[in-house]
Amino acid sequence: MVPLSYYLILSGILFACGVTGFLIKRNIITIFMSIELMLNGVNLSFVAFAAQWHALSGQIFVFFVMVVAAAEAAVGLAIIIAVYRTRETLNVDQVNLLKL
């Protein structure tokens, strides 16, 4: 049997990949996909912990996370389209009317 720590390390790596992608990518869609990667890392650790604790609830949570992520994606893509319509670009460096 694969030990728990392997799953946790993999989920940590997935999460870290997501965070890195969020920070260094410049295209809004790619940034958004990086967030989904973070959520997948979370899902993996939920399932791994559920197996460790023999608690079914951990697996159920994954469904909740996926459903909420889907809702978020629907709204997020709509917002991204709204930005594209007004700015004709999806590069975060050019979406800069509001100074940072």
Partner: peptide, 14 residues
């Protein structure tokens, strides 16, 4: 407004 929304969305989901 759209830009504010997308920034809020990305950082909020993060």
């Amino acid at each position: 407004s759209a830009e504010s929304s997308v920034k809020y969305f990305l950082l909020g989901s993060f």
